[in-house]
C-alpha cells in the first residue's frame, strides 16, 4: 500500500511504457524465430566439417549419396520462400 500512496510521477508512465515496449519486442522476436524455424528453405546447420570427415574416414559415418536434392537455384539461395 506504500506504493499506492506514493504520488504518480510521469517517469512511472515512461518506465511502464518502456517495459511494455520491451515485452512487445521480445514477443515479436520470438514469433519471428518460430516462423523462420518452420519456413521452407530456412534450415541449414553449420557443422564441424573436419570432425565429420574424421568420423567418415574412421568408418563411423558414411558419405553415401543421398537422393531427393537438386543444385540450389538462385531464387532459393536468396531466401523469401513461402511457408508450406
Amino acid at each position: 500500500m506504500i506504493a499506492a500512496a506514493r504520488p504518480w510521477h510521469p517517469r512511472d508512465t515512461r518506465l511502464l511504457g518502456l517495459i511494455a515496449l520491451a515485452l512487445v519486442l521480445i514477443a515479436l522476436h520470438l514469433g519471428e524465430g518460430l516462423d523462420l524455424a518452420a519456413r521452407a528453405g530456412s534450415g541449414h546447420r553449420v557443422i564441424d566439417r573436419q570432425a565429420l570427415e574424421r568420423r567418415i574416414d574412421a568408418g563411423d559415418l558414411r558419405d553415401h549419396e543421398a537422393q531427393w536434392f537438386h543444385q540450389a537455384r538462385p531464387e532459393e539461395t536468396s531466401g523469401g520462400r513461402r511457408t508450406p
Binding site: A40, G41, S42, G43, F69, H70, Q71, A72, E76, T77
Partner: peptide
Amino acid sequence: AVTCELCPRGCV
C-alpha cells in the same frame, strides 16, 4: 549449395 527435396522444410 543444394536444396533438399525430402521434407517440406526444403533446406537450402
